[in-house]
Design a protein around this nucleic acid. Sequence first.
DNA 1: ATAATTCCTAAAGCTAACTTTAGCTCAAGC
DNA 2: GCTTGAGCTAAAGTTAGCTTTAGGAATTAT
Lengths: 154, 154
Amino acid sequence: MDRRNEISIGTLANRTGLAVSAIRYYETQGLVAPERNAGGQRRFLRSDIRRLSFVMIAQKFGFTLDHIREVLSRLPQGRTPTAKDWTDISQDFRAELDEQIEALTRLRNKLDGCIGCGCLSLDRCALYNPDDVAAEKGAGPRYLMGDKVMRPEG
Amino acid sequence: MDRRNEISIGTLANRTGLAVSAIRYYETQGLVAPERNAGGQRRFLRSDIRRLSFVMIAQKFGFTLDHIREVLSRLPQGRTPTAKDWTDISQDFRAELDEQIEALTRLRNKLDGCIGCGCLSLDRCALYNPDDVAAEKGAGPRYLMGDKVMRPEG
DNA sequence: ATAATTCCTAAAGCTAACTTTAGCTCAAGC
DNA sequence: GCTTGAGCTAAAGTTAGCTTTAGGAATTAT
């Protein structure tokens, strides 16, 4: 059973709503770092419930796990994060969100210009200026503004 | 060489900036439907330059290819789209964009509430209401944050 | 002491949106 | 008419973020 400050992966899954497999995956991505008991099973801290909750919220906003890991690294090391620690990084987070909203809005305004001129044909179209859009290199899905954009899929 | 109204895949790639492989992929996804010449090579219409330009712009805004295909299907069939046809669907498109921006903004405001209350760990967290979130893909409801177990609906 | 759970690892599978590779064929230029 | 260059297909690879499967091992419940 779960002792005072240690919980099993199953308990953590129940408390967060995440799948056990997802939590194990997050471990491989460096988002949580559980210890192991004598039998080799993972033992998480109760504070990891909050940590993974933060991950889930950040994902709702479309941030990648890489980015979330980077943000989590700003938490103080060596002690359990306090409520203030969490609100502090949430503020950073909010700032990034604001930037994203602004970038989307700028892009929309450019679209307005394009609708106006009826061009939509590349040559001098403002929308083709890669200015405030992420560089797209190599394989894989494309991302907007450095982070994954929210996709309106069904 | 390209005749009056027919262009090769290479020419289309040059004119749009897309990779040849990407254009072939778009064909498999039903975004363009070129004919073939005697030798089996694809022959596109010049108007496909504009069509694929539209696809590229839509992607910049984060729409999926599935969604873009659906939007393109609103173009009149059987004739080359006019400038007005394009501005018409661009308007639709703009409306969806506005919705997206608003949804992101609403979500951000909820985050503000959370920062304000310092919770990020409580059971009635506004961030967990899937209402105006772009899409909750697949998996069941997740209950968020915290020390109390929330029953998923059902 | 068993049976029923839960957990473990490693590897393969899935979706989106493409690219890369391999092995040929077609078209264009000299 | 031969050599490039462009095009063709099918299949496998890539990234993100997971899930599923297979085959055991550890825990918990009875």
